[in-house]
Design a protein around this nucleic acid. Structure first.
Lengths: 133, 133
DNA sequence: CGACAATCTACACCCAACGTCAGGTTTACG
DNA sequence: CGTAAACCTGACGTTGGGTGTAGATTGTCG
């Protein structure tokens, strides 16, 4: 319609490109994680490219084990002008807590990777052994 | 009572030492993640030290983002005689799939850590700036 | 032996993160 | 202008990972 909307996409396209369902997007909107760039009159949601970026970032943070609530607390750091963020000390606290969790997780994950490779080698040996009997 | 049980602990002690509730232990037992060393007559569960080790391992694997089902599939690698594990190919598949997920996760986690440190630095600068106004 | 703590089973309930379904509106197309 | 596709909201269902509670049983201690 209007030229403003011409560069925007509807929820169907967004959900497909982001690899989530439209219900998930609705759900994220209720949690304050994403919102449409435009939404007048009809009620249809129209999104710009930044919404896609947000959804991708959310997926990445989820893979790291953050809850949606945790994500809500930090996502604006990636997309808003940080100079305008209120409660900077609070945000700083959250970030630092997250950093220390992340470092622990990195160590555990590295150790786990070693375990896995060792176990894989062991399994290979056992299988070869069993077949050679 | 019997000398066999003298070195064992009940669910209360186990749960306290493992930092989980007895309800969680019951739940894990239903999923096949832990089981008591002894359980005759009375119905009381008696555990040895290896049960504690298992619970700690479970917690560690959970922190890495494995589901309880995933954990059930691999935990015996840590505590059972691997030569006796049936379906070795299947276990191998699980391990390799997990390894590739783990490697991805390691990369994402490293990137996330960089993001966090960058954002922390930015927050520090902004706060200092705001206070110096 | 009585009292009280620890444990048992079974069922119900909780939260997060969605998915499903139903009924109603809006938009695009021939 | 009719119809189909896309969208809307609201209510309810589901899965994973547990927690709460009741009522009964077992163990311990003076």
């Amino acid at each position: 319609m209007g030229s403003v909307l011409s560069s925007l996409m509807q929820i169907g396209e967004l959900s497909e490109r982001a690899g989530v369902t439209h219900r998930t997007i609705h759900y994220y909107e209720r949690l304050g994680l994403v919102r449409p760039a435009e939404r007048e009159g009809s009620g249809y949601r129209y999104y710009d490219e930044s919404a896609l970026k947000r959804l991708e970032k959310i997926a990445a943070l989820k893979r790291l084990g953050l809850s949606l609530d945790d994500i809500a607390a930090v996502i604006d750091l990636y997309f808003a002008d940080a100079t305008g963020i209120k409660g900077k000390e609070k945000v700083l606290e959250i970030l630092q807590a997250q950093l220390s969790r992340t470092e622990t997780q990195l160590q555990e994950l590295t150790a786990f990777k070693h375990d896995l490779t060792a176990n894989i080698a062991r399994m290979h040996a056992l299988i070869a052994d069993a077949k050679r009997k």
